[in-house]
């Protein structure tokens, strides 16, 4: 029996973790191929840099800049016996591909009375913070979570990236992997061997007793920074990473809030209509009698992502906004 100490782990980046997961899946299964814009060159983010050399042009396929066609190619290929990984370079471009994802991929199995199998993985990059402005910075995961038939995961760090990408590729349903382009350099311990992170399971990142903070993607790291500041003030937050947004592990999140009596959901996406509202509502339905305060939400303000660094800094939630909101929540009494 293997114990955790026997598994070879080392520090690698979020970027390398994504690449390693795809590489290992492609080695194991010839049905897996990668298609996207400039993927042979590694993509604009260099995530796929080493794949062409190992797998060749048959399996690493450069697409024309045609997101609708590209997504549709993935749908048709997935329905007919392959396991495509479709790269939509920036999540902002998802709109162009949305009919194929929402009306075709998500509904095909249901509309066909269960006969179809859609092992389709969609990789995409969300996240603001580098002055690439309103059409290259959005976090649009709420759009996708609203669609039955899709699964949506959001890796927060290297360990999550490797395990969730592998689970997505091995899943027989369409899964959108929403990565964060500004997390690509984050380092963390990752096992060398392949492993799955089961979809639909949240993870308790930090145990605490005073306030439950549900943080999505990159916000996990901001919440960790906030935890250090708050600990110095005697406020002990519990941090939860849902890892999968659809299906959502409400039970793990609600269990935490029943313990602390206070909940906060933090995401980088626009707060209004964001998935945070759904998460907060789902938790309060399960934990209402334990609540000491309303479940709060932190998200971006209701504007497009701005260009200028001064504006963008004010736009993206961070450890400071989390600290302030947690202080407020912690002070509230019924």
């Amino acid at each position: 029996m293997t114990t955790i100490t026997e598994i070879q782990t080392r520090e690698i980046s979020y970027l390398s973790a994504i690449s390693e997961a795809i590489t290992q899946c492609m080695r194991e299964d010839d049905d897996v191929f990668l298609v996207g814009e400039d993927v042979r060159l590694g993509s604009v983010f260099h995530v796929y840099n080493d794949l062409l050399a190992e797998f060749g042009e048959r399996r690493i396929v450069d697409s024309p800049i045609s997101e609708a066609g590209l997504m549709g190619l993935g749908v048709g290929a997935a329905a007919t016996g392959t396991r495509p990984v479709v790269d939509i370079m920036f999540m902002d471009f998802m709109g162009i591909a949305l009919d194929q994802l929402v009306n075709q991929a998500a509904k095909m199995k249901y509309m066909f009375g269960g006969k179809a199998r859609l092992p389709l993985t969609v990789m995409t990059m969300a996240g603001a913070g580098g002055s690439i402005a309103a059409q290259h910075s959005q976090s649009l995961e709420a759009w996708l979570c609203h669609v039955p038939g899709l699964k949506v995961v959001m890796p927060s760090g290297p360990y999550e990236a490797k395990g969730l990408v592998r689970s997505a590729i091995r899943e027989d349903n369409p899964v959108v992997v929403v990565c964060n382009k500004w997390s690509l350099g984050i380092m963390g311990p990752v096992p060398e061997a392949s492993y799955d992170i089961p979809l639909g399971q949240a993870h308790v990142v930090r145990e605490g007793s005073d306030v439950s903070v549900v943080a999505l993607g990159r916000m996990v790291h901001e919440a960790m920074a906030a935890a250090t500041i708050l600990a110095a003030e005697g406020i002990d937050i519990e941090i939860l990473d849902p890892r999968t947004l659809s299906p959502l592990d409400v039970e793990t999140l609600a269990t935490s809030v029943r313990k602390t009596g206070r909940g906060l959901v933090v995401h980088e996406a626009v707060r209004f209509g964001g998935i945070g509202g759904e998460i907060a509502a789902a938790i309060q339905e399960e934990a209402f009698d334990w609540l000491e305060a309303p479940i709060m939400r932190i998200g971006a303000p209701f504007s497009p992502v701005p260009f200028s660094p001064s504006l963008e800094k004010a736009y993206v939630p961070n450890a400071d906004t989390i600290v302030q909101t947690v202080r407020h929540l912690h002070a509230r009494r019924v």
Binding site: L73, G74, V75, G76, Q104, M111, K115
Partner: peptide, 28 residues
């Protein structure tokens, strides 16, 4: 539809089936 007969669906979206057929061809 009947995927066992190779019928990848009628489609309520005009033009929706064309990329899917191209994807099936790629897969073949």
């Amino acid at each position: 539809s009947d995927i066992d007969l190779g019928i990848l669906g009628a489609n309520g979206i005009v033009g929706g089936g064309i990329p899917i057929a191209v994807g099936a061809a790629f897969s073949n």
